[in-house]
Simulated scan of single mutants.
Amino acid sequence: MTIAPDDAQQGAPHVYQAMRDFVQSMDDTLPGKFEITKEGIVHDMMAPIGPHELTAVHLRKRLEKIMPEELVAHTGTPDVEVEAEGIMRHPDIMVIALADMDVPGSFDPRTLIAAVEVVSRSNPDNDWVTKVRDYPLMGIPIYAIFDPRTGTGAVLTDIHPTPDGPRYATRKDFVYGEDVTIADWTISTDGLPRY
C-alpha cells in the first residue's frame, strides 16, 4: 500500500520530514515495513514469514562465506537514505564494509556494494518496480532480486543517466538452481525456499 501526499513528488523538505517522522513512529508498532519513495510512504504489510526470512538468511550466509572479512551481508537496521531525493529504503540485505556501518543514523546508500531484496508476496511491485527505479537514483551500484513466488530473479548493474533519471543498464536474469554473481561473488541458488 502506498500513502502519497499531494506534494510528495515535489520533494518539499517539510513533507519528507513529516513522512520520515511518521515512519519512525511506526517502527515496532505495526507489522510490516515502512519505506519512503518518490510517491510517498510504502507499507509492505508482510509480517516476516518463513520462506522470506529463510531466503534472506541463506543468501546472507552464502555471501559472507566467500566475501572478505571486512565486508558483511547485513540484514538489520538502519535504513539507507537520500534526504535530498526524499527516499528512505530498507533493503533485506545490504552488502557493505564494516567501516561504512560506523555512522550515526541511516547508512549512505553510496557506500553499499549491493542491495539484495527477497520479493514480498504481499507487494511484489515494490521490489520489481519502485526499487528498480529508486536504487540507482540513490547510487546503489548493484541490485539483486530473488523472487520466491516464481523461483526467478535478476541482478541489475551499470547505472547510467536517462531522461527519467539514473537507471540500471544491465539486467541478468536467473532461475533458482543456477549460480548467480553479485559484485565479485558467485553463490548458488540451490535449495532456496519458495512461496
Rank of each mutant, 00 (worst) to 15 (best):
H160Q: 13
V175K: 07
D100R: 06
R110N: 07
D147Q: 04
V180A: 08
P78F: 07
K172L: 08
R149C: 00
I142G: 06
L63P: 05
T111P: 01
R171I: 06
R121F: 10
D79C: 07
P163G: 10
R60E: 09
D79K: 05
V95I: 14
V118K: 00
L156D: 00
D147N: 12
M94R: 15
T152F: 00
L71Y: 14
T150V: 12
A99C: 01
T170S: 09
H160L: 14
I145S: 02
Y135N: 07
A84P: 12
R149A: 14
T150H: 15
D125R: 15
E70A: 10
E117G: 09
K61T: 14
A154S: 05
D100L: 06
I96V: 15
R110C: 05
E70Q: 11
V132G: 01
V82R: 12
T130H: 12
H74K: 08
P68T: 03
D179L: 08
D79R: 13
V116W: 01
A84D: 15
P109S: 04
F146N: 08
D173Y: 08
E178T: 14
E83I: 14
F146K: 06
G86C: 10
M67P: 14
D108A: 08
T157G: 13
Y168V: 06
F107W: 09
T152M: 03
E178A: 11
G76C: 12
I145R: 01
G153A: 00
R171A: 07
L59Y: 06
F174P: 12
D127T: 01
V80S: 07
E83V: 11
K131R: 05
G105C: 04
T170V: 15
E70C: 06
E69L: 12
V95P: 06
A115G: 00
D108M: 13
A169D: 11
A84S: 15
R171N: 09
V119E: 01
L112Q: 10
V132W: 09
Y176M: 11
Y176F: 15
E83R: 15
V72P: 04
E69D: 14
G151Y: 05
T162L: 01
D102F: 14
P109V: 13
T150P: 10
A84N: 11
P78A: 09
M88T: 15
V95Q: 03
P78L: 09
L98H: 11
L112F: 03
T75E: 07
R167L: 03
A144G: 04
K65A: 11
I96T: 06
G151I: 01
V72R: 13
H74E: 13
T157D: 04
P91S: 13
K65M: 03
P161I: 07
D134Y: 03
E81M: 10
T150M: 14
L59E: 00
Y143C: 08
V116Y: 04
E117I: 12
G76K: 08
E81A: 13
P163R: 15
G76F: 10
H160Y: 11
A115K: 00
T77L: 09
L156H: 12
G105Y: 12
L137Q: 12
F107Y: 15
D100H: 13
Y168M: 07
R149D: 09
A115I: 05
T157I: 07
L156G: 02
G177K: 10
